[in-house]
Amino acid sequence: MRSARRSPFAKAGERVITGWIYLCGFLSIILVVLIFLFVFKEALPLLREYPFASFFLGTKWIPEPARGDPRFGLVPLLASSLLVTLGAIVIAVPLGLATAVYMSEIAPVKVREYLKPAVELLAAVPSVVLGFFGVAVLASLLQDTLHLPTGKTMLAGSVTLAFMAVPTIATISEDAINAVPRDVREGSYGLGATHWETIWRVLLPAAFSGIVAAVMLGVGRAIGETMVVLMVTGNGVSRALSDTMAGDFHRVFATYLGLCRTITATIAAEMGEVVQGGEHYRALFMLGVVLFLITFLINLVADFALRRAQRT
């Protein structure tokens, strides 16, 4: 009997290790729940002092007014966050995917050998450095080429965030494409498909779940980013954005050429100066709750997409 040969110590050791792994798993879940509860608990009292609707529908964020009551309107911040991220996705996903396809399918071996580590290195560049780049180079460039009054714009934010996301999207997508078994490629070629048809109709669909992951991680890095956005977007509300909030929706494209003020940047800029337990403090935590819900929602959607991908 095999089990008889194993020493009781080995058995106990196995049990300890299994237990430890379970514990780690549970701990991380509990940690997330606890953190969420903490944030939620800090945020909730806001709704006692400040009406729910004014927070979720308010179009002005004036936390420390010189006169009168503060206003904690979520709309400009939420709109800024969503638009900046959307812009970043629109730029980063095609770029990242194209890079991935180039690296895995098109580049000659020699080029690939140097390109892949280079892109991976880019993914490791600290975001603040990219922020400096965004302010010093990108903002000026946008200002000059588009003749803007200021280069600190939502577009600059989107582009900088896209820069941060592209390497992640590219390397992970490349791994996913490479992981498509050779058999499957050969199946496609064997039916008379060209290189492009194989990439487009087989490799990308087959790598879909990996690509979704790549996009999620890349964009996730961008969404959570605070200081970079703060630096390149000017942290104000442009007139185009005000107009859009007032219902003039076709102005939404113009918002990319103006300032914006994202949820994360607002938290980063203001958290240091709030009195613990004050209304402003609670409002910032409420922003945290909103962010949490947004990422949660994105996760759900991605999860749904993955499940669908799994089924077909």
Partner: peptide, 14 residues
Amino acid sequence: RRRVGMVFQRPNPF
């Protein structure tokens, strides 16, 4: 390859 079709040793459905 369209004219000379192939069934592979290991099944490789897409």
